[in-house]
Amino acid sequence: MLPWKELISQLAHLSGLPALIGLVCTASVIAIARDWRFELWALLAQYILVGVLHLRMLPFELALVRVLAGVLVCPMLYWAARWVESERAHKAQIERQQLAEQGQVPLPPLPWPVRPTSGMFVLLAVLLLGMVLYSVSSSFPLPFIDADIAPACVWLALIGLFMLVLTSEPLPAGMGLLTMVSGFGLFFDVMGPGLVGIGVLSALDLIMGLSISYLAIVRDLTGEVL
């Protein structure tokens, strides 16, 4: 076995707890952070951590395919988010100038991005979800999967669902969807999907990433100012 492959395989022997802690952190950042850059970095880290967990249940090559698919999704989202941000800033600038011209006043400050919920609310909600995770994991453990990986699946699914409920904006909701699908992917490994199944799942990840990026761009074609 190649040295780097051996090194990576050894990661699989890590207990699920460090990975779970890492996933708790990354998913929480995705949910709580208001800047898409933090969210994307957290998503990237999340995919890598999920890949490490995949190593426990899949052959190395298949796990690598899953990680690569996830990692490739992040640049797609990045470019989409960059374009959206620049467009929004451009439109905000135009509107500020129009307001200033109408009122003959100095340029007003740029408005803060408005989100339906504040960071504190999301933080508290995430904490609540953590408690839900604890109680669900102890009372209704996920069957067919190792006990130390199951909480990771549940956590990712909960956070993903929470983000989908929280917002209908394509980018954050899309990241929530990808988070949920990551958690599902872990559980699906027990079904023995094989090469074709893993290939299709990875293609799904890529297509979903592409679709989410597209929707994020389309969403911003209204001309509305953030």
């Binding site: 669902l161 989908l164 409920v165 929280l166 917002t167 209908s168």
Partner: peptide, 10 residues
Amino acid sequence: QGAGYMAWVL
């Protein structure tokens, strides 16, 4: 049917 649809579903 608005932004809170998923919340209603949940």
